[in-house]
Amino acid sequence: MNIFRLSGDVCHLVAIIILFLKIWRSKSCAGISGKSQLLFALVFTTRYLDLFTAFISIYNTVMKVVFLVLAYATVSLIYFRFRKSYDSESDSFRVEFLLVPVAGLSFLENYSFTPLEILWTFSIYLESVAILPQLFMITKTGEAESITTHYLFFLGLYRTLYLANWVWRYHEEGFFDQIAVVSGVVQTIFYCDFFYLYFTRVLRGSGKMTLP
């Protein structure tokens, strides 16, 4: 464990908690892409199947459980409890355009052709594109509440910190996970445009982020 990975995990947890609390307290999921949250729940489900077969550490197990519980709790808020406020009109990204290529690639490019490994690879590839429905929804509505942009900021920051973690681990341990690194770079690139808008708009105190 290193400071980059730990702070990355903390940013990830903060992002998920920000979103959950925003929906819970405002009793509304307006502006939130339910599809992205479904994809994230799928990412955690396919990645954490080793929860019961491989014990890494207390921290690892606890964080996996917390991520899974919060992901499904957020999805249930969006699609059940506050479904009247769910804007399915604007959440129109065709997720099959993500799932099919990601599933195909995970069968082609993986470390070993076993169910657990293919599902893990699927979760890595899926995570790099899971935010696209949310980013698409923001471009469609042309705006995002500032709390939603803070959620996206921490979510983007978490994988950016993981890139630093991989540089560190390569330097310190010679550890290099090509699939995770390549996907992590792609994932972070998708946030670059958002980061630019976040720093130039939201942090300038304009509250809401409105797209040009």
Partner: peptide, 10 residues
């Protein structure tokens, strides 16, 4: 190939 059996990252 990395030691991909142990997935120690979240």
């Amino acid at each position: 190939q990395p030691n991909f059996t142990i997935k120690d990252e979240l």
